[in-house]
């Protein structure tokens, strides 16, 4: 069951694929047909159910395009590291 979810700001994102690389659960995949206004292929939150809300994709995204949420059931505070 998903513990968290992310949003991707497609105007900030440059399609560098690092979020795909760093997500420990492989929740993010590169789309093959979704482009942003600059014609860059976008990553998509493909496997939301795997997301643990660990925030890695958030701070490892070079363009601050990803915001990470955590569902309230799991109230344990997780520091950013």
């Amino acid at each position: 069951m998903a513990k968290g979810e992310i949003t991707i700001n497609e105007e900030y994102c440059k399609g560098c694929e690092l979020c795909v690389e760093f997500c420990p659960k492989g929740c993010i995949e590169m789309s093959t047909e979704k482009y942003n206004s600059r014609g860059l292929l976008m990553p998509v939150f493909a496997k939301p159910e795997e997301c643990t809300g660990c925030t890695t994709c958030g701070f490892m995204c070079p363009d601050a395009a990803i915001v990470v949420y955590r569902f309230d059931k799991d109230k344990t505070p997780v520091s950013e590291d």
Binding site: Y12, K14, L18, T55, F59, P62, D63, V68
Partner: peptide
């Protein structure tokens, strides 16, 4: 749900001009 990560408040909303994958943004 509650917020777990977003960019620091100190960073404004200007889009970064760095190349895709450049570590400077991090």
């Amino acid at each position: 749900k509650s917020l777990a990560y977003e960019k620091p408040k100190l960073i404004n909303d200007n889009k970064f001009h760095f190349c895709p994958g450049c570590n400077y943004g991090i």
